[in-house]
Write a protein that binds this DNA or RNA. Structure first.
Lengths: 345, 345
DNA sequence: TGTTAGCACTCTCCCTTCATGAGTGCTAAT
DNA sequence: ATTAGCACTCATGAAGGGAGAGTGCTAACA
């Protein structure tokens, strides 16, 4: 069977209506709302076909139809028109930068908030991925004899600082020499490369002060590892309650458990990072069972043409994809532009 | 009317039973479970008295009784026995320190998690309050010409770094002089004092490089202000769903909105910071209407004898106070001991 | 041959009714 | 002072029934 023009119109109508109401859509409703000059009976026939083709479903015999995941996929690929953000939305987004911080984490936090505020979905933003970022400088700054601060300045302006305990026999001069040595070898490398490419000088040192050097290298490793858990910014976690399909406590609870499980969020968002502009994962398309009730709109932000991190909007499968996509796209472009301005060499 | 020994026994029984079941407690239940050699009828009379005295309430005529906030208050002040954590709980708590980080924030994050995990309530932990902490060193470290990193090392090992944009006409030498000047004047002062006590030299500089100096001072101010929002660590936000009184979606939603509203949490926890050891705020005792359905157990953690920050456990008013208090106390002592060891001069 | 009106049928939703059971308060006996 | 007995209250859950929305099918129509 073919998806003729009329079927397409009807499918579109059902999707639109269901997205905005959350109620199964009946033939009469469509006939009334979308004046396409055919009777409910005809629409019923067409809907029956659409059901057979897998685009529509009936929750029970005497209810209207709801779109299937396949229908949403078709919708976002073929039917949906994205819109520009309204002037007001755009203005709110641009206002993020007013605080004039040069700290990328602060900006990311704002991004998570604005995404969820404007869309009323739940937002997840991953902090900049350290393996994408180049090391600029490494400094070991002595503090009160017992500690040193390991400071790593990166190309994205991200500064990772880690307090390291230092042995007694190490003085400020030594720390400075080490700083220079580390900077020399690891400048313009990524964090991931730090453990692998160990320069000869450092291996020499390693022999002499094993404990100290290895705690420095550990600190690098920890910075990468710990990102998985802690650098996830969430916005609007309670927004899910706005949707009637989450009025039931069990679903709401499942959703919140999901959101608390940062591991899944992290994996999900990372997975799609390399692909196109905006990605949409609809319901059962998601490889994580826990999320097959939801849809996720995924975007990225960059410095120059280097993708730094990933953002997601999580909502019910009947989410307003056009809104979510357009806001996500705008925010992504806007943040990238701003970060590039700030940090591009 | 007096709270005689028998009334007391009965009150205790009702509270215990209600805390563990969440169901209104009837006279027969008490007669059966707590063998005190009197009949249900007698218990009914006593309960009726206790109701008149404001300790018990009836949800409706033909239901059992539930304790009032006044009863819980009496219970936590007079009846409750706190217990030591079990060996297993203690071990889990001590395991926090295994990661051997010297970063206080990382530890705090773990504290929030362990509190909620063990108690199954929602935990809130405030990061170290900067106004309690003394400045040790201030450094302005030049980065790539355009930026400087303002680094403040404090007595609690907390390092606040803020990236500051610097004007073209400022060089590394100048930054070093400024670092020394700032350190000289603000060493052993708190963040709050930075804006007030402006030393003469700095005011001189202020005239020459107004923009730069004020952005440095702004950074101090921001560090204090931004704490309110961002340095709150939450654990187990979805735990509230475990309690039957939060099975209804409206209450659950209210609770989550509350938790998302970090401002209230911050104010609440700060308010009690100066008072004794462990504080308990029961239901309507709370000055924030939004929280009058909950109880909060509040504790602190310190370095030496300086209170650094506050922790809270939020649960239903029928929470297991004895468990919450003993875990809170143990965690507070344990964390304080560890931090003191790490950072005490 | 595609479209439509008509109609019987299905199923959810909501309202009412009713029985059950837990628990009370009161009274009178111990 | 305590208790057994009993009538009464109220929440809860099951059962029944009507309303309404929506369908699928059939037969008539253009």
């Amino acid at each position: 069977m073919q998806l003729g023009k009329r079927k397409l119109q009807i499918l579109h109508a059902v999707i639109n209506d269901y997205i905005s109401t959350g109620e199964p859509v009946g033939s009469r409703t469509i006939a009334k709302k979308y004046d396409m000059g055919i009777s409910p009976a005809t629409i019923r026939n067409e809907m029956s076909d659409l059901e057979e083709m897998g685009y529509l479903q009936q929750p029970h015999t005497s209810a209207g139809r709801i779109p299937s995941d396949k229908a949403y996929r078709f919708y976002v690929d073929k039917l949906m028109k994205t819109r520009k953000p309204t002037a007001e939305e755009a203005e709110r987004i641009e206002r993020i930068y007013q605080q004039k911080t040069a700290e990328i984490e602060k900006i990311i936090e704002q991004v998570a908030n604005i995404l969820s505020d404007i869309t009323s979905y739940t937002s997840v933003v991953l902090g900049p991925r350290l393996n994408k970022v180049l090391i600029r400088r490494i400094e070991l700054i002595p503090i009160d004899g017992q500690y040193a601060l390991l400071l790593v300045v990166t190309s994205a302006g991200i500064i990772k600082d880690t307090l390291i305990r230092i042995p007694d026999n190490i003085d400020a001069g030594y720390l400075e020499r080490m700083s220079n040595m580390l900077t020399k070898y690891y400048r313009n490398k990524t964090f991931a490369e730090v453990n692998i490419k160990q320069a000869a000088d450092i291996q020499m040192e390693m022999k002499k002060r094993k404990e100290f050097i290895s705690s420095v290298l550990d600190a690098f490793a920890n910075n990468i590892a710990s990102k998985n858990q802690s650098d996830i910014y969430l916005g609007g976690t309670a927004n899910i309650f706005n949707f009637p399909e989450y009025q039931n406590i069990i679903k709401a609870r499942e959703f919140l458990n999901l959101i608390e499980n940062r591991d899944i969020l992290y994996k999900l968002l990372n997975q799609y990072e390399t692909e196109e502009d905006i990605m949409i994962v609809i319901g059962t398309e998601n490889i994580y069972n826990e999320m097959q009730d939801c849809s996720v709109v995924i975007g990225t932000y960059s410095i120059g043409d280097k993708v730094l991190g990933t953002m997601g909007l999580i909502g019910p499968t009947r989410m307003e994809y056009s809104k979510a996509v357009s806001i996500m796209r705008y925010v992504g472009e806007s943040v990238s532009r701003y970060l590039t301005l700030l940090f591009k060499e």
